[in-house]
Design a protein around this nucleic acid. Structure first.
Lengths: 344, 344
DNA sequence: GAAATTGTCGGGAACGATTGCGTAAAAAAA
DNA sequence: TTTTTTTACGCAATCGTTCCCGACAATTTC
């Protein structure tokens, strides 16, 4: 079934004009008489003419759409970031095409090829937890394709990046636990391939050592899929809880890690914060409704999406190749609730 | 900054052939000699040629992309539904363009015009809570544009619809409360403009009356924005709780209504289920982690997205106009947890 | 009154790819 | 050798739009 749209040609034939004249009349060109303009405009309105964006894209070599690749839209952080992306993109007349990698490298490559071949003008990406090899992004970037990273950036690729101060966030969260009297603080970490994981571990370790505690290797456990699969979280936490001096507090370094951590505690009847305290990176908007209410490190997701989009559009619309890349680092917000409080 | 892609013309010039020959070689036409084919294929591979989808769209009058309009992607139900949509669309070579109405009629109209003018081949929509006037959809549908409704359908527009058995879902949820000994059951309802709201109220009322309870008008309160704004939920619940015989249980009829209801109870120190029991429509994947764990009516969101997309693609790819429209009604699942249990 | 200017508009190429049709050369049939 | 067939390719139109030119008329200038 096909949906036949009205074209400039239809107007031209109906009014006995040429397509060039109609086109010019619609664009309010000075070389068209007011009478003709009026005719064309009225007729176009009457038959509900809409310019064909595909024809325009072909001519302008610009699709006015941008691609977004995230691991999962059913994740508070990313859906909030996408809201930010959308708000800027739509206001500037750009379309947003969203793809999900589901934390899989293969899916990310497929999505990327698909998007790139669909003639998007630029890409916003937060790489998947599994991704170690960045050649698919590198080659596109080398050919001059506009890419902006947000949240999970690739260090080796030199382009705009919008990230948060993961180091400080993890430091503050860890220090908050220490200040509350916890001594054996573990770190439930995401994929070791991600730079954000490294930064968060660094902040965590720094807080431990700065405050005169002993940094314990076994207190940091990685989850390759960033907590997407419960089993990896379970395995990581099992390992921690099996230690002779098991942790009395945990810093969970990602949205899904945090919620699955809570699920683990619930299933094992481990009380929070009595048995183990918890603070986690999370953008969940019902963190306050959990049992116990959850202390979180919250990312400015909406703003990140907005800034990343602004940078991308600036790059797309710039005449010359951009070489002066920005590295925006946004602050994290710590929201203290019950899960990290010390009970007497 | 522009990203110059390789075209068929580049290959033709480099190999001293015509564009038609190159095109045919790439499509493995029988009228091209094996030697030429080999040359073209190898060179195309070498310079990483990708056909320009925009040029193809222009020629075929098909963009191979579908539009999706939902109220909010930061909503478990819709993000799960979008996952279902994506899974089918991508497997069939279609792109998905997502727009959010944020429950606003104006935004919905803008999104629709934008998408329609962006040459999408078809539309999946779950109408906004505010929408009363459906002429924007009707006129598109009248002109033969493929539209499939999911979840929130428009009764007056005759096309494929994928919905759930809201009546039975609300009936079962209400009856579950009655069976658990609750007597004064209230209904926190969504927008009165939506057919799903009417169906859910009908199921609720039916359960009340079938079980010999008295149907009380004041026990049903509407939220025009479907719970998106906390204040309307607060107002609705304030009205209920101010009644002389205030309810001892509540059926919340949408995702956001349910979570905001919990937020209300928490802020007012109303205990669940001791003071008021609660069961709500929700696709939240951490309903079991709330305090108390939340009894829910869960929609098969992923499957709904998949089915809706299959129907839409079938409509798009059908040669003739479709007139035999399906109305798929999927079952709801009730998951009983603590929030609706009767404590002695 | 002839020349220059201005106002309006149409023809046609271009964007990238596909495809019906035409045709040269080579191969097969006569 | 001549005619027919096959092979292998090129030309040009098409999709919808824009825009560079060219053109004709009316108007203004000298």
């Amino acid at each position: 079934m096909k949906f036949e749209a009205v074209t400039i040609k239809d107007i031209a034939i109906a009014l006995g004009l040429s397509t060039s004249t109609v086109s010019r009349a619609l664009r309010d060109s000075y070389e068209i008489s007011p009478a003709t303009k009026k005719n064309v405009l009225e007729y176009a309105e009457k038959i509900n003419y809409r310019p064909n964006p595909i024809a325009l894209s072909l001519k302008e070599k610009r699709s006015h759409s941008i691609g977004v690749i995230v691991c999962e839209i059913a994740n508070s952080f990313f859906s909030q970031a996408i809201n930010g992306i959308e708000s800027i993109a739509y206001s500037k007349g750009y379309n947003v095409i969203i793809s999900q990698s589901h934390e899989s490298y293969d899916r990310e490559v497929i999505d990327l090829n698909y998007l790139a071949s669909r003639s998007i003008d630029g890409l916003l990406i937060s790489v998947s937890a599994e991704t170690e090899n960045f050649s698919h992004l590198q080659s596109l970037h080398d050919r001059g394709f506009p890419i902006v990273f947000f949240d999970r950036a690739v260090e080796s690729i030199h382009t705009h990046k919008v990230i948060v101060d993961n180091n400080k966030g993890a430091f503050d969260a860890t220090e908050h636990l220490i200040k509350n009297g916890f001594q054996r603080i573990a770190n439930l970490a995401g994929s070791p391939h991600l730079s954000i994981t490294k930064d968060r571990i660094m902040g965590y370790r720094n807080a431990i050592e700065t405050n005169g505690l002993h940094y314990e290797e076994a207190y940091t456990q990685y989850c390759l899929h960033g907590g997407m699969v419960y089993e990896e979280v379970e395995k990581a936490l099992d390992a921690m809880m099996a230690l002779s001096n098991k942790p009395d507090a945990i810093v969970a370094s990602a949205d899904k890690l945090t919620t699955n951590c809570i699920r683990y505690f619930k299933s094992k009847n481990i009380r929070v914060p009595e048995d183990v305290a918890l603070i986690g990176f999370s953008n969940l908007d019902i963190a306050d409704l959990l049992l116990p209410s959850l202390s979180v490190v919250r990312q400015p997701a909406f703003a990140m999406g907005q800034i990343a989009t602004e940078l991308l559009l600036k790059m797309i619309e710039s005449k010359r190749a951009v070489s002066d890349f920005e590295n925006r680092v946004l602050p994290l917000e710590i929201m203290v609730r019950e899960s990290s409080s010390k009970l007497k």
